[in-house]
Each structure stands twice: as C-alpha cells, then as structure tokens.
Write a protein that binds this DNA or RNA. Structure first.
Length: 437
DNA sequence: GCGATCAGGT
DNA sequence: CACACCTGATCGC
C-alpha cells in the first residue's frame, strides 16, 4: 500500500515495521496473539512482558531495541519502490516498565514519538534520560514531535512522583490501624509500591496476575497474594470505588488511596452530591500542597479538608505516569521541534500542544516549507497511534441510557464461566480472596 | 463456540 | 474532567 512504511502503537494498517512504545492496552488496540503482519520493535522489558499479555504470540516477530543505541531497518519506500533506510533509537520514557519513546530518522526527516512519557527533572534517572535524548538529538532538528499531551494544560500541575509517594506514605502513616487499598493498573506505579514497602518494611498484596508481572519485573520478595501478611493491598483500579470501600469498612477500618494523574473527584452519584463534579480539594501549587478549603460536606466524621481527601474512606494523590504541564513545557524547550502534534486525541478534550507551546518551537529553521514537505511524507508513510474516544459521543441518548443495571461488586455472584475466569484473572474477586479464605 | 468490535461502565 | 481497562452485547465466522 502507498502509506505503509512504519507504524507506532498502531496496528490496523499495513506497514513494513511496527513499533510498540509500551504495553498499556490503549496502545495495543488491534494487536493480538495471532499477529503476523510484520516484526514489532520494542524494548527488552516490553518483550519480556509481551507473552504475558499475548500468550500465544509468535515471539520470533519481536525485535528488541536496545535503549540508547541507534538501530536501522531497510524497507521499501511505498511511493518509489526503492530501498530506504530508517534509523531509530529507543529512549526511556519513564512511564511504565518497558515504556520508551522512539526517535526516527529517514527520508521523512527526524521524528520523535514520545508515546506516553513522564519528564521529571529531579531524579538521577531523569537526568540520565535527558542526557540520552540530548546525545541522540546531537543538535539535529526534530521535524515533528509527536507528544503525549495528556496533561497539556496549565491546570495540570502536580509534583514529581517522589513527592507524591511521600504524600501516600503520610496518608498511610496517619492511619496506623487501617487496612490500605491502593488502586493500580496492570502495569505501572511499581516504584510507588516499592517505596511504600521499603519505608514501612512491609509486603504488599497484589492480585495473582499482578504478582506474576511483579516476578517478571524481578521483584521476588516484596509482593504477596497472602492477605494475612500485610495491611497494604494494591488492587485493580476498576475494582476501586466508593462502594468497595464502604463494603470493606463493614469488616475492618480501611482507606483507599488512588494514585492518579489528577485529584479529580470521583463520579457524581446519589448520596455524594456535595462532593463531586468539580476540581477538587487539593492541588499541588508552587512547591507545596494546598487544600482549597472551600469544600464543605455533611460528612459526619469531620471535614474532608486534609489534602487529597475525597471521601471518608478515599484519598486521591497526584501520582502520575504522564508529564505535568510544566514538564511538557521543559521537554519542548529541550527538543525545540519544528512542529508538533499531540498523540492523545479525543473529541472533547484534545489540546493541541501548539496552542500553549507553539512559541517554543525551534528557531532558525527553514520554517513552514520544510515542515510541510516532511509532514506530507510522514503522513504518507508513517502511521502513528493516537488515543481517541472519538465516536463514543455520537451514541444517542437512548442508547446511553439503555438497560443499565446496578451492580454490587463486592457480593456479586459469578454469572458465567467466561466472566468468572476474567474476573479471577484480573483480580476483581479481591474481597472473596481476602475474607473467605 | 470463537475472536473482534463496540458501547458503556469503573 | 483523565486514564487504563473491565464487562456484556453483538456480529461474522
């Protein structure tokens, strides 16, 4: 086909080489165990985790890309049919285990695709990442930066993960006799859990599948699936809700901590009316946490004005694996791309990074003409994944309201073999595992 | 009965 | 309001 040279995090078209930045499922839509189109380039750690997500995948199709080295692949130019070489380098994206950015050079120019990334500036690891990127760029211009623009808005202001991790520890320390539930996904936030484990000298419960992942990542002693060994449990985020926490509290005093990009409130719902639906109680500002103090509730146990407190049993901490607005800004200043484009798009929330950062683009560049040329080439030959919820908003009101039944997650009876297997696999049966053994 | 896809949730 | 990902329905095979 005419437009198929390479694809990044995009699996639907016909390309000659495919690149995977990381294994979160919003970047693997369309990828499956039966994949056979062409080789997939990814980091070593992603390759290691790969079979776990895609059990019967033909691993001979994976190409491990060593981080920080240039690699090349020879392909056929879709337009001319002649040989063309694409050079590429993987750079640590500091997002989740195995996550990398890809820097490409070829006839199309120089492209940097960040995938999801966090660009902290305070840690040693961040310093290494910065140096690696600078070495890779080696003063040459990035024609197009494809940017993780998830939090590309000045409202999105949160601390480095080290600081957020301390906030989590503070919350735990202030609840010495509580069980602690932390909501996480299938990959990511391991450093937070390791930090908690180290500081409190305690094991951390995870669901069985997550334990396997932890073992693949090389963490052998820290995590456990035995509830009796610890009061701190990391549970799938989707099983973390007001109802879950209320239910758990009928058995033991328990608080939930949601490490998440932003201290947005939980969903509006009956009985929680005054709490929800707006920007929340605390946010990180100018190097310290402030409570907004304006949230009044009828909470009988006292005010919810401690930082991040969302609900009598739930805290939200801004522990994010995506870059904050100011980090995005620093990154763009460093890269000085000639042009850029957000990879996170949705019909209602897409923020074009050019809106805030257009002025930060590289200077002394030939400008639009060169850019246009590359852009055309890129559009023809490179296929890039974007996250999108576009389309969902077109469903009718009738469809949206159709047939929703209220679920009682804690006590739900397994309704089918297939869904039972799914739940067990994903650890949703947390309460059964915890309290009926 | 199966995987892929979609809508609708947490 | 974001993100990541679960569940159930439906469709094509």
């Amino acid at each position: 086909m005419e437009k198929g040279l390479i694809s990044v995090d995009r699996w639907s078209g016909e390309s000659q080489a495919y690149f995977l930045t990381h294994l979160h499922s919003d970047h693997t839509n369309g990828l499956s165990s039966s994949w056979s189109k062409a080789p997939i380039f990814c980091s070593r750690l992603t390759a290691k985790l790969f079979p776990f997500k895609f059990p019967d995948f033909n691993l001979s199709l994976l190409r491990i890309v060593r981080i920080g080295s240039w690699h090349s692949v020879s392909l056929l130019s879709p337009s001319s049919g002649s040989k063309t070489v694409v050079q590429f380098m993987a750079i640590d994206a500091h997002h989740c285990p195995g996550a990398v950015m890809f820097l490409f050079r070829g006839d199309f120019g120089c492209l940097l695709y960040t995938g999801d990334f966090r660009w902290e500036t305070t840690s040693d690891r961040a310093e290494l990442g910065r140096n690696m990127l600078l070495n890779a760029l080696n003063d040459s211009a990035v024609d197009i930066l494809y940017l993780d623009n998830t939090y590309c808005n000045p409202l999105y202001d949160f601390p480095p993960r080290e600081v957020a991790a301390q906030q989590v520890l503070d919350i735990i320390a202030s609840h010495p006799d509580h069980d602690i539930i932390i909501g996480i996904d299938s990959l990511g936030k391991e450093d937070l859990l390791l930090h908690i484990s180290r500081v409190l000298n305690i094991k951390i419960w995870v669901w069985p599948e997550r334990l396997q992942t932890m073992h693949l990542l090389g963490y052998d002693e820290i995590f456990t699936t035995k509830t009796s060994l610890t009061r701190v449990r990391a549970v799938p985020r989707y099983s973390f809700s007001v109802e879950t926490l209320d239910g758990l509290n009928t058995m033991r005093p328990t608080i939930g901590i949601m490490p998440s990009g932003l201290p947005w409130s939980v969903k509006p719902s009956e009985g929680n009316k005054n709490l929800f639906g707006s920007l929340l109680t605390a946010r990180y500002s100018k190097s310290k946490w402030i409570g907004n103090g304006g949230v009044q509730t009828d909470e009988p146990n006292g005010s919810l004005d401690s930082p991040g407190r969302l609900h009598k049993h739930i805290y939200s901490v801004s522990y994010s694996d995506h870059s904050s607005f100011s980090e995005i800004e620093k990154f763009i200043k460093l890269v000085q791309p000639i042009n850029m484009k957000g990879i996170v798009s949705s019909s209602c929330c897409y923020v074009d990074p050019m809106y805030y950062f257009g002025r930060l683009r590289g200077v002394n560049q030939p400008g639009q003409r060169l850019h246009q040329k590359h852009k055309r080439k890129e559009r023809d030959e490179i296929t890039l994944g974007t996250k999108s919820t576009f389309g969902r908003n077109f469903s009718t009101e009738v469809e949206r309201k159709r047939g929703r039944s209220v679920k009682v997650k804690l006590l739900r009876v397994q309704s089918s073999r297939v869904s039972a297997c799914r739940r067990v696999r994903s650890g949703a049966k947390i309460v059964d595992d915890d309290y009926t053994d």
